[in-house]
Design a binder for these strands. Sequence first.
DNA 1: ATGGGCACCTGGCTGC
DNA 2: TGCAGCCAGGTGCCCA
Length: 271
Amino acid sequence: MPELPEVETTCRGIAPSLVGRRVTRVVVRDRRLRWPVPRGLETKLAGCRITAVRRRAKYLLIDTDAGTLVAHLGMSGSLRVLGPGAPLVAHDHVDIVLDSGRCLRFNDPRRFGCLLWVEGDPGQHALLSRLGPEPLEPGFDGDYLWRRARGRRVAIKPFIMNAQVVVGVGNIYASEALFRAGIRPSTAACRVSRERMQALARAISGVLGEAIEVGGTTLRDYVNADGLPGYFRQRLFVYERAGEPCRRCRAPIRQVVQGQRSTYFCPRCQK
DNA sequence: ATGGGCACCTGGCTGC
DNA sequence: TGCAGCCAGGTGCCCA
């Protein structure tokens, strides 16, 4: 489910209710996530003061005075702040109860997400230490992409979805960014010129930035921290539009499979 | 080092 | 109505 804009939207949504609060209690109903919720999380987190809520790639980092809760929403996860007495629904796996009486609730039907506890600098954790740059921060541009692509024969679409190259480009926005840049998704990364890499870097930052502005993309059941859907869906040019006319040139959008993921592109606009 | 494929899991939709 | 089959927003890990 969540791509970077959804995670950023969640981060901004939950932060005001969390920062400065103390955790009074942690309830784990089901530890079976991608990795089991660590035994002892309840004890370690209870009593902690939350000092910051950040995002790195698609990880949410909830810093406390004793350690950092590292959360990933996987394909179907959500984190919401709820008032006391909010009814439990299916797949509500973990509650983090705050001294305000409200609670941060982790729900994840497919259980591809995770909740980990890290003491010390989370940036040193194996999951985070090898990540590429943030696409919306300085250090990410066409020259960077072009340098990283030298000698890489992998197709450009899986290349930009590789978190060691650049973080946060998921399946939807990879197709959308390549459409904006006019690049065929099957092109070998090393064969994309410097100029076209510059267009691609701008397209990646642009598409992600715009999606964040409108609260992400709602496909099926995603809701943000307030339980509201995102509105980027109306702005998609190719994703899930197989057979429909290109919004720019009317040619039918094509769907192919790359690395077991669906890719969408316009055969006329993207060369 | 690189690239390709698999695995984890549930639910919604389609078509018989 | 029931059920099998297919598909889905992510990403770590294994193997060649």
